[in-house]
Design a protein around this nucleic acid. Sequence first.
RNA 1: GCCCGGAUGGCGGAAUUGGUAGACGCGCUGGUCUCAAACACCAGUGGCAGCGAUGCUGUGCCGGUUCGAUCCCGGCUCCGGGUACCA
Length: 888
Amino acid sequence: MEYNFKAIEKKWQQYWEKNKTFKTPDDTTNPKKCYVLDMFPYPSGAGLHVGHPEGYTATDIYSRFKRMKGFNVLHTMGWDAFGLPAEQYAIQTGTHPSVTTNKNCDTFRRQIKGLGLSYDWDREINTTDPKYFRWTQWIFIRLYNTWFDEKLQKGRPVNELTIPDEIKSQGDKEIRKYVDSRRLAYYDNAQVWYCPSCRIVCANEEVLNDGSHEKCGNQVEKKYLKQWMLRIPLYAERLLKGIDDLNWPEGIKEMQRNWIGRSTGAEVDFSIEGLDEKLTVFTTRPDTLFGATYMVIAPEHQLVDQITTGNRQKQVEEYIRLSALKSDLDRTDLAKEKTGVFTGRYAINPVNNTRIPIWVADYVLTGYGTGAIMAVPAHDTRDFEFAKKFGLPVICIQDPDVEDAEKRSAILEGNECWTEDGRYINSASQANGIDINGLNKEAGIARITQWLESNNLGKAKVNYKLRDWLFSRQRYWGEPFPVIHWEDGEISVIDENELPLQLPSLEKYMPGVSGESPLANAGEWLNVTDTNGRRGRRETNTMPQWAGSCWYYLRFIDPHNDNAIFDSAKEKYWMPVDLYIGGAEHAVLHLLYSRFWHKVLFDLGIVSTDEPYQRLFNQGMILAFAYENETGAKIPVDQVTEKDGKHYNTETGDELRQIVAKMSKSLKNVVNPDDVTEKYGADSLRLYEMFMGPLDVMKPWDDRNVKGVFNFIGRTYRFFSDPENITGGEEDIEILKGLHRTIRKVEEDIESLKLNTAISEMMIFLNLVYKKGKVTAETARAFTLILSPFAPHLGEEIWQILGHDRSLAHEPWPEVNPEYLKVDTIEYPVSFNGKMRFKIDLPAGMGKDEIEKAVLSDSRSDKWTGGSKPLKVVVVPGKIVNVVVKPS
RNA sequence: GCCCGGAUGGCGGAAUUGGUAGACGCGCUGGUCUCAAACACCAGUGGCAGCGAUGCUGUGCCGGUUCGAUCCCGGCUCCGGGUACCA
């Protein structure tokens, strides 16, 4: 009988839903627990594409497997539903974003349910639901009320902050200022890109090279707006150290480390000629101080105006004006040609009291270090380029460790830059009592740093690339901040009992004037008065999309709790997440932000683990075929026809080349899972997604290959649904051996997420079953069980046919019997000079000498040995025999 | 530029990380079933030579280490991703 996947899949999906088969167990006494999490999707209007089910299927297989292994499994799905598209649609049509969002969620839910994924749907969450974002706001209040104790490397409540006496004596306002300067969340001016025509703030990537807005083409401008910021760099060290013990892909760990960007060096103070100010620089190479020939400050540096001398004012102002107009992309594009101007003033090098000029250049960034550098052109490539361009002196202070004499003299003469190790020269000052000549880099850095510290000219310093996190958006469709700005300038967060602070309904969703969010038009909602009659205005910014996704894994633990963010006992039981699967595009930001929040919650005693995600796995992107012509122009898929394996443009008749590319609307090569389930069923989609190749690599989708797994499903069904094929009595020994090898392989492969080879092993077993023609009921049961995590509808159906009246979802996983894995003979490949020539069956326990004897006495050896004694025989028991003979 | 991946049949991909290269699947070829086709089932399938046994050759290219290299080392080519002057 043919497999009617449509009817059968529907039947089991209804069964699971009705019987709540995948309800998370309430009992928290089972020591075996497994929290399996997918990165929850943003429900876009386009619906699911085949990339989504890749990760979801992998976690589903893992979850189903763990349930059968006796684990309590928490496996859930939800929606990261705040986001710009719904808001833009609202601006155009007036439809409330929640309407659009809910519609999209319904589509996603319907599509995902059609894949037979074993989520506990009773725990579905939605970040836009006030019952959810109430707790996002609650966490924000926690962040606001936390400071970071650097000594303990720990976040603590602000009421535990000791106020220095000198601050106390200055009164309440100063105390408040002091406390605010320590909070993890603070409110301050931050520079953003603003498009006056769209009246919105744009992200960096929306600003094009020429400084125009991607969407409307008008010029954007830089603007300072009051923003909420989070002091994530305070946690840099903790975030960095925490990475080491995580079971994450090495590449992702490395990316996070680079993003945090720890570098050690020193801060050095330079005095400025004719000014009573110090110019502090950060350098990783304090050892090269003797080679500093000029200094550079960023155009935004605080001291620019003071440093610039009267006669240079015009040029400097012009330079600053021009660099302010550049977008970030623009600054980078100009990377090849460095620009800058001289300020007219000199600094004094503390090691040798030399006068060195101070320049302004935008290759120095305000956001990193102190926004000023000492330039050592002889030993820094960027400084070298700059010095060459502007004719600044290059003084070599390090005799390089190079063999090449020509290169060495070029470096010594200052014609080439050297950044590696070497012995110092020209690096001593008797007057200042410092001499590092002859030392190498490591010793030099140590000596100079020590000297700087003891002379009060600088100190050792660790710097991080990680910057404060800009945590507000000028949007409507996000979590409102639970914050009030009072008329006297005080800022306060609202009482927790008043949460959630809901979004007001608006007539229009157009942004407010001069960069304010649409909430600026919210009328009554905006205004508040406290019991003393003091008036205030609500925060009009909203939180970024990261906010909801930063902690959703915690809410899944106890999603309907209205009294607390979650129950602590439940949190203790389920955390940490045991397996987290999602795309590598979230490698840095989402995972870093989320770890940051988690650590704060940990410090405050709200969660029980220091890290949220124990094991992380990134699925690779699924690509699709696309076509390009001779010139490399891409042709949309609907304009391509295939003939005899070649591809032609339907309009021009040109032959096209098949390439592999990202799925995109413009290429019209997006594969919709609905089409696949319609034609082959959900089990085929699941199996194909897993069978395509390793989970973590990019792979091209090829519809034709779906047939392979579809056939496998049909073959499985036809065989096991036919009572003729199921026998009583003793099982065939080859079947038994094959079965147990398959169980073991599938088990191991699920653990290591090598799901492609698990499937091929099951195919091998099925081929054996077909060859044998009959199996016992016991074999049929075992095979059905191990197949069921991959193809659950098929599994349940066969399970029922085999005589069971309940779902197999909680049946125990078949035990591997090691008896059947034993081998008594080994087929040794015998090679001569490394080339395999024949195979010989030998008993498994045979010793080296005996194997050698058996091989050499085999008549087939004579041909290669020529009858004479071989030079050498290498025997690797259990593996191979290699005979070395004189080449003829 | 830098960092990280990768390159294996006509195609997607296997190979216990130094031990039989090409598992499994697609495609293709042949056979059985059928009036015929589709489905299904069985067999074959890296290339070259040969009726065949078999031989030669073969994991992007060049070289090295080793009894033995897809795997390790050195040097290249190409492809993909990330990143952007981080002092």
